[in-house]
Amino acid sequence: MLPRWQTLVALVPLFGLTELGLHQWFSSRAPAFEDYAALAPQLLALKKPGEPVVVAPRWAEPLVRQAAGTAFPLHELARADDTGFRRFLEVSLLGAEAEALAEFKLLERRRVGPFELRVRENPRHEPIEFDFVAAAERGDMQVFNEQGNARSSCPWVEHARASTGGLHGHVTYPRRRFECDGGRFVGVTLIEDQGYRPRRCVLAQPPALGSLVIRFAAAPASQRLVGWAGFSYFLGRDGNGGPITLSAKAETRQLGRHVHRPEHGWERFAFDRAGEAGPVELTVHSDTRELRDFCFALEAR
């Protein structure tokens, strides 16, 4: 009688052959470039404005972006979060499902080669009444430096010198921006959150002394303001630089105040607005004089 362990050991060569077979299967399983090219027209036909495309697994997203770049408008790709969108278009391959959409209702599914396109509805959708980042991108606001009771205006510049900092440097400094004294400015850029995902936001560099004031003259009525604040997580994750305070007020009353620490990453906050309409004034203040690449997004909901 052969000991059981010897019988098991004798199976090792079969394991070797099985491993080779599995390797062949895994290495040829993912879609090829041609598959993505064939997907593109169908994806673009199904894509509607305001319905972000989500790719599952996430690592395949650059391939879908390469094949169908127009399906990814930047404001959707780098959205503040998912709650502002009613529907999503999920591109699934290898049977994957986007974790963030897992509980969203499936409205439609369509097979395209090795992909499945799924239209999903967000059960926690909160309509966006006003997107302050889009307004900032249009230059549709006023920006001031405030010290004591004195305010100095920061003019809108269409063709400033844009710059990028690379891996260890600053976030992209946009070409269209409000330029303040001391070389600081306000404009729309991207930062990466704590998952290193892109977030589109208003870069607001507070002055060395005093505060930065951003005034939106007309924001439609909404129950509340929902916001997100952050720094580039890669640069801010070690907590250097101390907190930044963002406060919001309506014409006559204070709406709320959020204190943000860089190591927190992309952080959500909300201020009650009680259905009011009218101007919204944001004040950004740093306790330190150093240049701070603070960024925020804000929506009236």
Binding site: S28, A60, Q66, V171, T172, L190, E192, S232
Partner: peptide
């Protein structure tokens, strides 16, 4: 963050060439 800077600088989120391994 480097790629995100490229997006803004180049005005495109769509890569022109890609090296893949097993997809």
């Amino acid at each position: 963050r480097v790629e995100q800077q490229i997006w803004l600088e180049y005005g495109s989120i769509s890569p022109d060439v890609m090296a893949t391994y097993d997809g």
